[in-house]
Write a protein that binds this DNA or RNA. Structure first.
Lengths: 141, 141
DNA sequence: ATACTTGCAAATGATTTGCCAGTGT
DNA sequence: ACACTGGCAAATCATTTGCAAGTAT
């Protein structure tokens, strides 16, 4: 952080601790809970800090559905996501599992796809099996 | 609509006219503008109706970035989207253009992917070329 | 006539901004 | 000391809900 002219405050330290303690994406609110012991916490500051930490590449965020944005620790090979439009299930995969998918997209469309910010959405294997031909226009909130 | 016990009001007719006049996804606010001539309009009603129309399959919605949700007319073969994390560009493709991508995802992961609700996000051909190795953690708002 | 619809006001949920006091360096 | 931070209150944006009055059928 220091390299970016940022100070190392307890709040920021605690936030990073919370975020780096797991791979699970969490809401700003959940990150704030990591500060509940500290003198005081405040969502506004948490949002401000999440933004700063994201700018310097220590944190990133994902949109996995209709809820609030989710924050995750950033890393060299960030995990990628899939969400089921029917049951809402979220699957997490290591980037290499999508190498082939990325290759096909690159070849056929010329885009360098990443599913770290928006997930691959569709039907998970279970719902796919259960549901008939599923027009699937209803999305699991 | 009638088949679903819904009444055919002018508001709804106008909303559908606005939505079916283009393939472009639009915000609830933009849909509401289609009613500006009518006696009065109201965003609350527009949202209520968009929800109903979505339930009966005449409308669907997409999330293409950080902004508000976008509504589009629903159809047999709904278009699918790609958005660039850097320049924000949105590309629209016909479903068949993604058949191979879908096939690979189905084979390797077992999911039936659709990019009608969440786009494929990543780097468009241009940004991909310009940007070096782009860690790309900053996403175009 | 009845039930579905709408406008309007107000509530929610998520996130942002302004401002001044607090504190790393 | 000085500039960056944090708390608090209030503003904003997108969307939802309650309710009484309006209107398709």
């Amino acid at each position: 952080m220091r390299e970016h002219g940022m100070r190392v405050s307890t709040a920021r330290r605690l936030m990073l601790e919370a975020l780096y303690a797991t791979e699970e994406p969490m809401t700003a609110e959940q990150v704030a809970e990591g500060l509940r012991d500290a003198p005081r916490s405040d969502l506004a500051s948490v949002y401000r800090n999440l933004e700063r930490l994201e700018e310097i590449g220590l944190v990133r965020h994902v949109h996995l559905g209709h809820g609030p944005g989710l924050y995750v620790r950033a890393g060299q090979a960030p995990r990628e996501y899939l969400v089921c439009d029917l049951c809402g299930r979220v699957a997490t995969v290591e980037p290499h599992e999508l190498d082939e998918v990325r290759a096909v997209i690159a070849r056929s469309l010329g885009w360098a796809a990443r599913f770290t910010h928006f997930p691959i959405s569709g039907l998970c294997p279970e719902c796919r099996a259960k549901d008939p031909l599923s027009t699937v226009e209803r999305s699991a909130k």
